[in-house]
C-alpha cells in the first residue's frame, strides 16, 4: 500500500507545512507507516513554482521523488499547468478553484473547491491548506483524520485556538463531497 502525493503551488502557500503534517501523521501517529517528503530546495521563493513530493507507505520507501502521483494538490495555475498533461485517468487532482482554472478535456479525477474562500468563511484564511488536507485524507485512504489532527496538535502545541481552527478545517474538508 503506497500513496504518492505531490503538493504544488507557489512559494509561501505553506505547502511544506502541509507535507510535514502528512509525514508526521504517518511517521509518528499511525502504526507502522513510513513517509518521505522531498521538498524543493534552493532559490525558490515566494511567488514562484514550488512542490513537495510526499510518499506514504507500509513498506520502506525507495526513491523519494515521485514519478507518477496518485494525488496532486494544485494551489496555483502555474502548478496545475505543469502537471495537467501528465495526468492519467486515475490521478486525483485536488485544486483550488479560487486560483486554478481546469483545462477542458484534461484527464484525471478533478476535485475542485474554493479553499481560500472557504477558509475565510471558516474564520481564518490560513486554514485553507487544512481544508485541502481533509480532502486529501479522504482520497488517499492510508491516513486517518485523527492522526493528522494529532500532528497538528503537536505542531501547534500550546496554541489551542490554532489547533481548534485547523481541526475544524480538516473536518470540513473531510465532509466535502
Amino acid at each position: 500500500m503506497k500513496t504518492e502525493i505531490i503538493l504544488s503551488g507557489v512559494g509561501g502557500q505553506g505547502l511544506v507545512s502541509t507535507g510535514e503534517i502528512l509525514g508526521q501523521a504517518a511517521s509518528i501517529f499511525e502504526h507502522d507507516l513510513y513517509a518521505t517528503m522531498a521538498a524543493a530546495y534552493g532559490s525558490e521563493t515566494r511567488g514562484t513554482f514550488t512542490k513537495s513530493d510526499v510518499i506514504i507507505s507500509d513498506q520502506p520507501i525507495g526513491c523519494p521523488n515521485i514519478d507518477k502521483a496518485n494525488i496532486i494538490l494544485c494551489l496555483a495555475q502555474v502548478a496545475y499547468d505543469r502537471y495537467v498533461d501528465t495526468l492519467e485517468d486515475d490521478t486525483v487532482v485536488i485544486y483550488d478553484t479560487d486560483s486554478v482554472v481546469k483545462k477542458e478535456g484534461a484527464k484525471g479525477k478533478h476535485i475542485g473547491y474554493p479553499f481560500r474562500s472557504m477558509a475565510i468563511e471558516l474564520g481564518n484564511i490560513q486554514t485553507a491548506n487544512s481544508i485541502a488536507l481533509g480532502v486529501m485524507i479522504k482520497q488517499c485512504g492510508v491516513l486517518h483524520a485523527d492522526t493528522c489532527k494529532q500532528a497538528v496538535a503537536a505542531r501547534f502545541a500550546g496554541k489551542d485556538k490554532v489547533i481548534e481552527l485547523n481541526d475544524k478545517a480538516i473536518d470540513f474538508g473531510m465532509s466535502l463531497e
Binding site: 509525514g23 513510513y34 513517509a35 518521505t36 517528503m37 522531498a38 521538498a39
Partner: peptide, 11 residues
C-alpha cells in the same frame, strides 16, 4: 548528500 540531507523521513 543534498537529497538525504534535506529529505524529510520517518526516523
Amino acid at each position: 548528500d543534498e537529497v538525504i540531507g534535506h529529505l524529510r523521513e520517518t526516523c
